[in-house]
Structures are given as C-alpha cells and as structure tokens.
Amino acid sequence: MGNSKNEEIVWVKRAIKGDKEALGLILEKNQAYIYKMAYIYTGNQQDALDILQEAAAQSVDAIRTLKEPNYFLTWFCKIMIRQTGKLFKNRQHEVLVEGNQEWVDRAGLIFTDSTSIDILKAVMMLEDKYRLVLQLYYYQDFSVREIGQLLELKEGTVKTNLKRGREQLRKILGEDYYDRSR
C-alpha cells in the first residue's frame, strides 16, 4: 500500500509540473472514489458524471496551484464541490434522489426504501453547507476533523452545521417522522 501511495505522489508532482498524462493516471487510479464522492454530492449518476467531467477539465489548468501533493484527492473534491454548487445554482428545479440504499443513520433508525427516499429528498432540500456535511458524515463516514479539512472549516463549525442540518431535516420531515421510522 505504501509503495502505491508513493507512486501516486510522484504522479501528482509530475502533474503539478504540467504532465497531463500523470494527472490522467491519478484520476484513473482513484476513479471509483472520485465517482462515489461526485454521486454523493449530486445524488444521481448523470449529474455526478457531469461534475466529474467539469472538475477534471478544471484540474488540468488548476493543478499548478496544488501546494501539497499528499492532499490531491482533497483538492480535487473541493473542485467537485464547487462544480456541484454551480450545477445546483443553475437549476430551477429540485433534484430528486430515488432508490439510494447508502444512507446510514447513526441514531439507530430502521429504514425502509420509502423512508430512505424521503430522507434523501429532504437532505437535497437543505442549504449546501448543511447538505454537504451531512452527506460526508453519514454517507462517507468522514470524521468531523476530516470534513473540516476537506471544506476548510473549523471543527466547531462542522459540528454546528451537522446539528443545524439535522434540526432542519427534523423540521422538513416533521417531528413525528423519526418515531415512525423506529
């Protein structure tokens, strides 16, 4: 594993110096992770592919700005987050997420397919700052610290956004929704 990571760092350094093939190798090696993150941000396959394409194109020009090769994936995910924000701002309609089985509730709720869809739809209605931290925390199992690093937020801000996001979900879904899901 360590050797693979070292090889990636060499590729990142080459990419920073302008080697587009090295950038392609890094993106290819991490494509499953990058796609999963894009899907979590957008909630559907087509939008995930769109932001991936835009982020990859943008990274070709912006790779020179990456200062720490070890944080390539964090840097690339920030580009995808910005692309997701642009995508959603350009839309007049609400993005609906259906059939996503990946929702994990750490409070111990039992979900059926319909409750999972209800919650995912509600999550998509949240402001970006709440939606992103909830998705990273619950879908991706990122720690508060990791979310803070990824989004360049203080840990306290991440905790506040998680709490406020859950409160907004409770308002959207209704106070008794959680009782029905247990």
Rank of each mutant, 00 (worst) to 15 (best):
A62I: 01
G43W: 06
Y41D: 00
Q46C: 14
A48K: 06
A55L: 01
A56W: 01
T42G: 08
E68R: 14
Y41E: 01
K67C: 06
Y39A: 02
E54F: 08
L52E: 04
Q45E: 14
G43H: 07
T65R: 09
D47E: 11
D50T: 13
Y39N: 04
Q46P: 10
Y39E: 06
S59E: 04
R64V: 01
I40G: 12
N44V: 09
K36R: 15
I63Q: 00
Q58R: 00
A56S: 10
Y39W: 15
A38E: 10
T42E: 05
A57Y: 03
Q46A: 14
D47N: 13
Y39P: 04
Q46R: 15
G43T: 01
I40R: 09
G43M: 06
G43A: 05
Q45H: 15
D61V: 02
A57S: 01
A62P: 02
Q46H: 07
Q58I: 02
A57M: 11
P69D: 04
A62W: 00
K67H: 08
A55Q: 08
N44S: 14
I63K: 00
L66M: 05
Y41T: 05
N44T: 10
Q46E: 14
V60I: 13
L52V: 02
A57V: 07
I40E: 14
I51M: 03
Y41L: 04
L49C: 10
T42W: 03
D47M: 08
Q53P: 02
Q58P: 00
D47K: 13
Q45D: 15
A48L: 12
I51V: 13
E54A: 10
G43K: 07
I40F: 13
A48M: 11
E54N: 07
T65V: 03
D50A: 11
A48Q: 09
D50L: 15
A57T: 04
R64C: 01
R64L: 00
D61E: 07
Q53N: 06
L66H: 00
D61I: 05
D61S: 10
Q45I: 10
L49H: 10
D47L: 12
T65C: 05
D50K: 13
P69K: 06
P69F: 03
K67W: 11
A62Q: 11
Q58S: 02
D50N: 15
K36W: 15
L52M: 11
V60D: 04
I51A: 03
E68P: 04
D50E: 13
Q58T: 06
S59G: 05
N44W: 12
E68V: 13
I63A: 00
Y39I: 02
Y39T: 04
T65W: 07
D47R: 13
L52P: 03
I63F: 05
I51S: 06
Y41N: 01
A38G: 14
A56I: 03
Q46K: 15
A57E: 00
E54D: 14
T42H: 03
A55T: 09
L49F: 08
D61Y: 04
L49T: 11
V60Y: 03
L49D: 07
Y39C: 08
L66F: 08
I63S: 00
R64N: 01
Q53L: 10
E68F: 03
Q46L: 14
D50G: 09
Q46M: 13
L52Y: 02
N44P: 09
R64S: 12
I40A: 14
